[in-house]
Design a protein around this nucleic acid. Structure first.
Lengths: 139, 139
DNA sequence: GCGCAGGTTGACGCGAACGTAAGCGAGACG
DNA sequence: CGTCTCGCTTACGTTCGCGTCAACCTGCGC
């Protein structure tokens, strides 16, 4: 008698299933929850993660790979949750998102340079390696 | 009588000049030195940074922006310092550099996706904002 | 009932990358 | 001469992102 058709019983996952699916630890998921980045529902004591939680987690992990702090990510996530936010809320979120977007575009451009640079250094090093192996042929 | 023509008296900079030039603190420079990422010469007690030190610092700060650890960066820097390394040393450095390069290329590709994604979310949010300002015209 | 696996809540610990404060030269300046 | 500014070292403090450990609940299989 507790089967409320909330909105849609998204296929729910336990914390362990989440950990296996995303290669994180339970500690990490609870930590993100404490920092208010995800909000799994509770069946009694246990956490249950739905489709939205998974989408959020995916974005969190992505953001981390780009070097964003959890707080920055938290702010960005509001953009992905069209919750009943008012105009100024939306505007604020948009402003933050624009900053992040700028960061990402700068990083994208700089990465391109750095990659080219590193490739050059690599081929130089490979030439040195070839030269070294000629001088001292591997016994 | 202490003017030894070391190799080339690259225009030397004090720690403060470096800090101003690169927007870091003295603490940071000394920390990088302790971690063996830069090796400024000493005039008496004072540190003096030459062109190479500046090039290294530039790479360090770049690497940091991509989220690399100081240790990873330290290893990469060997690639940029054709010091008298032997064959296996060079080979090891090359291997490490290849891994970093892979990281960077993955990140570059993923960034492209994330940027497109974020742009979409942004335009969605902007539409919501427009809609909200129609429903509740700013009094 | 009993143990056990799986989950939960604190609380403390830890490594990375510095910040910060204390105290000590050493040269420049009035 | 005093004192100011730079810089140096030593050492403890801090923030972030979790790891780790203890202690507890809780359904389940026997």
């Amino acid at each position: 008698m507790e089967e409320e058709p909330h909105i849609m019983s998204d296929d729910l996952m336990t914390i362990r299933q989440m950990c296996d699916a995303f290669d994180v630890t339970p500690r990490t998921l609870r930590f993100y929850e404490a920092r208010e980045l995800i909000f799994p529902q509770r069946r009694g004591q246990h956490r249950l993660y739905d489709r939205r939680d998974r989408a959020r987690l995916k974005l969190i992990l992505r953001g981390k790979r780009f070097g964003f702090s959890l707080e920055q990510i938290r702010q960005l996530l509001e953009l992905y949750q069209p919750g009943g936010a008012n105009g100024s809320q939306i505007a604020a979120t948009i402003a933050i998102a624009r900053e992040r977007l700028d960061d990402m575009e700068r990083q994208h451009a700089e990465l391109q340079v750095a990659i080219a640079d590193l490739k050059n250094q690599l081929s130089d090093a490979e030439r040195r390696l070839a030269a070294a192996s000629l001088e001292q042929p591997t016994g």
